[in-house]
Amino acid sequence: MSHSIIKSALKPLILIATLFAFAVTTYTAATSADASSSDQSYSKVYKEAKKHLGARYVYGAIGPTNFDCSGFTKFVYKKSIKKSIPRTAQAQYNGTKKVSKSNIKKGDLVYFGGSKHSISHVGMYIGNGRMIDSQNRGVVTENVYSPWWHVVGFSRPATLSYDD
Results as ranks from 00 to 15, higher is better:
Tyr145Lys: 07
Leu15Cys: 05
Arg137Thr: 15
Tyr145Asp: 15
Gln90Phe: 07
Ser32Thr: 04
Tyr145His: 01
Gly95Met: 11
Asp163Cys: 04
Lys47Thr: 14
Met131Ser: 02
Arg130Pro: 06
Ile14Val: 15
Asp108Trp: 08
Thr96Asp: 02
Ser41Gly: 12
Met1Thr: 09
Gly63Gln: 13
Ile16Trp: 10
Asn66Tyr: 09
Phe20Lys: 00
Lys51Thr: 13
Lys51Val: 13
Val99His: 01
Asn143Ala: 14
Thr31Cys: 04
Ser41Cys: 02
Ser2Lys: 11
Leu13Arg: 05
Lys82Gly: 13
Trp148Gln: 10
Leu53Ile: 15
Thr26Arg: 02
Thr159Ser: 14
Leu53Thr: 08
Arg87Phe: 12
Pro64Ile: 05
Asp133Arg: 05
Arg56Asn: 13
Lys106Arg: 15
Lys98Ile: 06
Tyr59Ile: 06
Ala17Tyr: 12
Arg156Pro: 08
Ser37Asp: 10
Ala35Gln: 03
Tyr57Phe: 14
Ser43Gln: 13
Thr31Asn: 01
Phe75Val: 03
Lys82His: 14
Thr18Glu: 00
Asp34Phe: 04
Asn103His: 09
Lys78Glu: 03
Ala61Gln: 03
Thr159Val: 06
His52Tyr: 06
Ser41Lys: 08
Ala89Ile: 00
Thr25Ala: 15
Ala21Phe: 01
Met1Phe: 09
Ala21Gly: 03
Thr96Lys: 02
His52Gln: 10
Ala35Val: 13
Ile5Lys: 11
Asp164Trp: 00
Thr25Phe: 10
Gly114Met: 07
Asn143Met: 12
Ile6Met: 11
Arg156Glu: 15
Ser100Met: 13
Ser84Asn: 12
Asn128Val: 07
Val144Tyr: 01
Ser100Cys: 05
Phe20Tyr: 05
Thr18Ala: 12
Gln90Met: 08
Val144Asn: 09
Ser161Trp: 00
Lys97Leu: 11
Asp164Ala: 08
Ile62Lys: 09
Pro147Gly: 05
Phe22Ile: 14
Asp34Ala: 11
Asn103Ile: 10
Gly153Ala: 11
